[in-house]
């Protein structure tokens, strides 16, 4: 929709062009959320696409995604065969509520920084133990585990003016077996629970819980736990006030479904171990 209060669009060519941050500024990546609802408090858009960041880089260390990499680009990546977690990357891209037309425009960084509980790239980043590279307005940088980026619904650890530059998914994580399970109130709807389990070569099991919770939760075990132990661990990690509640699923169903999906993931990974 038209954002009538926008007076200026800045199109920086490099980091030096980035403006001094002020109230009413917003970073524009894909624009799929920004242009989807009124933004009466905004006056200025900073177009990150103008920075021309290469969308992705694959090397021995892992996969580096620019914040401006689209979900469509990510979904289409041809990844090394050793990265057996790859199928969950595509599954996360397709877990977006929006259609393929949105995926072609929506960005990895936008999905993370919007910090909706159902954001599938949040699940991917946490499950793959990704590290975020953040650009501070003063020219410095810092790194933050993806798990620490999202603090709650539409709330992140980004300081005012801080920009998510990129996301690094380490090769070690990408080389684990990974299983994704998702539940929604409608066949292709917004996730009410989205869980990813991973199993490392050394038998370590980790479970990332998103969408049913206000911020991502990651449980790690040295080995695949029994079903009972897993459910007990989940219950301990998910107090009632951490369960998300909105029109996409009532809290009791989210909790119930989270347990059921966790069990399915556990069984699937154990069966393949």
């Amino acid at each position: 929709m038209d954002l009538h209060t926008i007076e200026t669009v800045l199109r920086p060519r490099d980091r030096g062009d980035l403006p001094e941050w002020r109230a009413g500024d917003a970073c524009l990546a894909g624009g799929t959320w920004l242009f989807s609802q009124p933004q009466p408090d905004l006056r200025r858009l900073v177009d990150l696409a103008a920075l021309g960041w290469p969308p992705h880089r694959i090397d021995a260390d892992g996969l580096t995604l620019s914040a401006t990499c689209t979900l469509g680009d990510l979904e289409a990546l041809d990844l090394p065969a050793a990265w057996i977690a790859a199928p969950v990357i595509g599954a996360c891209c397709r877990a977006l509520l929006g259609s393929f037309k949105i995926r072609h425009v929506a960005t990895v960084g936008g999905n993370l920084c919007l910090a909706l509980p159902a954001g599938p790239i949040i699940a991917l980043a946490v499950a793959m133990e990704a590290t975020c590279l953040l650009w501070a307005p003063d020219g410095t940088e810092r790194r933050l585990p993806a798990l620490g980026l999202v603090l709650g619904p539409q709330r992140t650890a980004l300081a005012p003016g801080e920009i998510l530059r990129s996301l690094h998914l380490p090769a070690a994580a990408l080389s684990r077996r990974a299983v994704l399970r998702r539940a929604s109130l409608t066949p292709n709807g917004r996730s009410g629970a989205l869980l990813i389990g991973t199993l490392a070569m050394d038998g370590a099991f980790a479970l990332t819980v998103t969408a049913s919770v206000k911020r991502p939760v990651r449980l790690a075990f040295p080995a695949v736990p029994g079903r009972g132990a897993l459910i007990r661990a989940l219950d301990a990690a998910l107090p009632d006030d951490l369960i998300h509640d909105d029109v996409h699923g009532r809290p009791d169903w989210r909790r119930h479904t989270t347990g059921a999906l966790a069990g399915e993931i556990r069984d699937a990974l154990e069966a393949g171990a």
């Binding site: 929709m1 669009v9 524009l28 894909g30 624009g31 799929t32 242009f35 989807s36 609802q37 858009l45 177009d47 696409a49 929006g98 259609s99 037309k101 949105i102 072609h104 425009v105």
Partner: peptide, 27 residues
């Protein structure tokens, strides 16, 4: 819908279908 949900505004941009309500005009 003006919000990228309904698709009634779909056009092709360089051959790719997009929800034109979500595309900043300058792009």
């Amino acid at each position: 819908c003006d919000a990228g949900d309904c698709g009634a505004c779909t056009v092709h941009l360089d051959g790719e279908p997009v929800h034109s309500c979500l595309v900043p005009a300058f792009r």
